[in-house]
Design a binder for these strands. Structure first.
Lengths: 259, 259
DNA sequence: CGCGAGATTGAGTTCTCTCAACTTCTGTGG
DNA sequence: CCACAGAAGTTGAGAGAACTCAATCTCGCG
């Protein structure tokens, strides 16, 4: 058995009330909800518990809102998990930048750089954000020596693969713009749920322009369709705060059973 | 060192001339190009070479054009690599079906089912197709016992993660429909290249309707934009055969340096 | 040779984009 | 704490792109 007591961070975490909050102390994601927990948790070998995290994990590195975490094309030496906050992922296309995805609390960032030398996109903080950073090299070294860690890493990467596939399917599979936006919201809800947050009520930390950019729509269209969805009682939106009256109805509209 | 000579399939493979061919003996992908080769290759332990493929791999299972390989929601016990042919992946959305991706020779299918019990989409043969099938359970068993296999599996899954991310970025990141289609073609070219086929000249095994469905456009729009791209000399298209006069120009148009 | 699926073309409609004006929000400095 | 400036959000009107519908053409297969 893994000795959870030897893992101090779990006890630090405060209970989360809601993702909706203006300015407060950051509410760190519980380590046992974080998708890196299999890697950060101590390993049991021959009856003894070993914790490798000290060797490779830099906990809760702070990034100010708007700050770049890493830049496309730069050498990638770290992988990241979001402890609090959120990011947008950006790719250079045709001399301009496009939002290609978002990452919220508890999610991993740039796992695909594990077998690549450089970052294939950039990442920028959407709000004040804390990241746990893991050194790729060290992780790979330890993984190659300790099968248990290798197995866990495998689990993490597989999970990530499923998540990305899932998200891509959801967003790609819808024709109408209204359904695309609904799918985007449903996807976010699902991810907040997976990170231990309320999924029927959360804060859109990105701007409408970011959402538009991500979905390949204009910001005006995004705004108008938000309004339309609200008129159809599928969502309730006030500024950056979003409420989903009925997940079931939203799922019916999008056409996918997710939650 | 791995003893390649103990791996008979490599020598069977015929040299590939071109993906463009009407009716001929299927030209199997060389195993050393297949993305499952790290798993199929024999493993060296204590100076001896062990080949586990016999225990878990069913080689070149034939599927007729139009046949379903597996169905969304069904229990997933196998993962697949395409030895010859191509597939479309389909998801049920709102009582109808939508094409969510394609897979060509040398590519893997449904790797994300590794950590899931059921298929999250369906797969259908776009032409007469041969698949190598690997039993998930057996693979996981062997991987958990032999670190070398685990490591290789890790490599395969990571690679797949990168590929999916790459494809998603390419297709998602473009606004205009014309650029979307160009990106789709460029993505296919890149994938044919990775599978050892000519990338400037290949056959579109899927219908225009499939492409339209996949890109979220109408089939008429796809046809008209194909024509437009041809008028701009970015592609040359005759029925199902496609030629890319200049990969550089196409990349410039899409705005991504891929090849 | 003929059937049927797929591909193509044209015309009219609908949706989304663009542009511009304006309001609201946010953060900064006085 | 307020004032201000810049960013983000909202709204309306006109232009352009993509969709739908229908008719026709072509190719592969029996």
């Amino acid at each position: 058995m893994l000795s959870k007591s030897s893992h101090p961070i779990n006890s630090v975490t405060v209970s989360k009330s809601s993702a909706i909050s203006k300015k407060a102390q950051p509410e760190y994601v519980a380590c046992d909800v974080c998708r890196l927990s299999p890697i950060c948790s101590p390993v049991n070998i021959g009856g003894h518990s070993y914790d490798f995290t000290g060797k490779m994990v830099n906990r809760r590195h702070y990034f100010k809102k708007g700050e770049r975490v890493f830049q496309q094309g730069q050498p990638a030496t770290l992988i990241y998990a979001i402890s609090a906050g959120s990011l947008k992922l950006i790719a250079d296309v045709k001399a301009s930048e496009r939002v290609i995805d978002f990452r919220i609390s508890g999610e991993l960032v740039d796992i695909c750089s594990l077998n690549e030398g450089v970052h294939s996109y950039s990442a920028q903080a959407l709000e004040d954000t804390y990241l746990c950073e893991i050194a790729k090299d060290t992780l790979n070294d330890i993984a190659s020596q300790i099968p248990q860690v290798q197995g866990r890493l495998m689990k993490v990467v597989s999970q990530e693969l499923s998540n990305i596939q899932q998200s891509a399917m959801l967003l790609h599979g819808n024709v109408g713009s209204e359904e695309k936006i609904a799918a985007f919201i449903l996807n976010l809800a699902w991810r907040y749920l997976n990170s231990g947050y309320p999924c029927r009520e959360f804060r859109l930390t990105m701007t409408r322009t970011d959402i538009a950019d991500f979905l390949g729509l204009s910001k005006e269209t995004v705004i108008r369709l938000f309004k339309k969805l609200q008129q159809n009682s599928l969502i309730k939106i006030e500024g950056k705060n979003l409420i989903i009256p009925s997940i079931e109805e939203l799922q019916k509209f999008v056409g996918i059973e997710l939650i």
